[in-house]
Nucleic acid binder design. Structure first.
Lengths: 211, 211
DNA sequence: TAGATTGTTAATCGATTAACAATC
DNA sequence: TAGATTGTTAATCGATTAACAATC
């Protein structure tokens, strides 16, 4: 077979499968593509095809071993080792997300995405901490990203500053950005950008409203 | 032509086009599918095809009138009239989102999605207000949704309560839910659910991280 | 008129589904 | 062994792209 890049549609479903496995792991040791699919909202054939991109994880007549598959998926998604994350823009949304992730990381031993630094431009915030996390000035991004081995960032700055800040994150060497600002980011292909744009989602949902 | 439901892939791009139009409307009165596409990150042929589902909005040799197309898109997405929204779960994320939407609605006259009520179960919160928005008990949802004509809701409760609360929202007659809780919701087909699940997005981005 | 750009058709591409031989 | 379920192939479905006649 000639090698093809695995599509984003496939990758998007893996965290969903991971969540299902986590939900069922207390009460069963194995799971069929049928059941996994039901719980994830995906057809069983597609579950098998998705997993088959990465290896042969199941046993005919039995299904998939829950703990084993969970571990394999975690490896595939690089969630078997710590990932260092920054958050840029310590406004009310930024603070809420920082709290959430900080707590999640502490409480869930399988949650390996570790928020290690916050950035802002407000001199009243820079130098202080939030939940024990240091707040640095955005100007220090390049040094801190390298020093703290930050690989991924959540961007929660105002829309007007989003492009500029995203550029700085890219320059600093961050590999992936989850953008909460209502703005489309123009960045080179080597950074992966995901949008968490609430306005876009709400406007889309509005289409389905009747009367 | 026999009628087909317009696909969600198309609907998702409309708010993106709307944003581009808003960005350019100060400096130009018309825009080509080429330019609109460039700014939205979509191929020009697809822009034309998307718009053609709803009518003939352009002029050959000229392009689309910015103000006219903006207005048409707003009508298509039901954003030409107020939409009443509730937020359920007044934790730190809920508060941050409430603030954001409240302010956005006040400052941007074209932003018609109006947050009108908050819900929670905490007796210390129920009966108080946040930014002038009343906080009701979740038990009152059915009455309030009807009385205040609430059509859409943001769900920011803990994962464990998400399914139950979503069910209550559905029973109350809410037509669309934007779910922030890390949980897959099982709801009848008549409610539209969108996921704003940060964990899922981060886990997906982790796949693309190298080393 | 000449140039630009639409709306639409047909071609292509990619993702999902159905079916089934292999095998636990 | 009989039943269940995988991994995989081929068929189907749907979305995107390319091309172009129509026309501003």
């Amino acid at each position: 077979m000639t090698w093809k890049r695995i599509s984003d549609a496939v990758i998007r479903r893996l965290p969903l499968y991971l969540r299902v496995l986590d939900d069922v792991k207390e009460k069963q040791t194995s799971i069929s593509s049928q059941e996994l699919g039901d719980l994830a909202g995906v057809r069983p054939a597609l579950v098998r095809k998705d997993l088959a991109w990465f290896g042969e994880f199941g046993k005919q007549g039995v299904g998939y071993d829950v703990a084993f598959l969970q571990n394999e998926l975690r490896k595939i998604l690089h969630l078997n080792e710590p990932i260092h994350m920054a958050l840029v823009g310590v406004g009310s949304l930024g603070r809420a997300l920082a709290r959430y992730h900080h707590r999640r990381f502490q409480e869930d031993s399988l949650y390996t995405i570790k928020l290690v630094a916050l950035f802002d431009v407000d001199p009243n915030l820079v130098g202080t901490t939030l939940d024990g996390l240091p707040i640095f000035h955005t100007d220090e991004m390049a040094e801190r990203v390298e020093e703290m081995k930050i690989q991924i960032a959540m961007l929660t700055v105002p829309a007007d500053n989003a492009q500029e800040t995203a550029g700085a994150l890219n320059d600093a060497g961050v590999q992936a950005i989850l953008n909460f600002a209502p703005a489309t980011l123009e960045l080179p292909e080597n950074v992966h950008v995901a949008s968490a744009d609430v306005t876009l989602e709400l406007q889309r949902l509005a289409y389905y409203i009747e009367k």
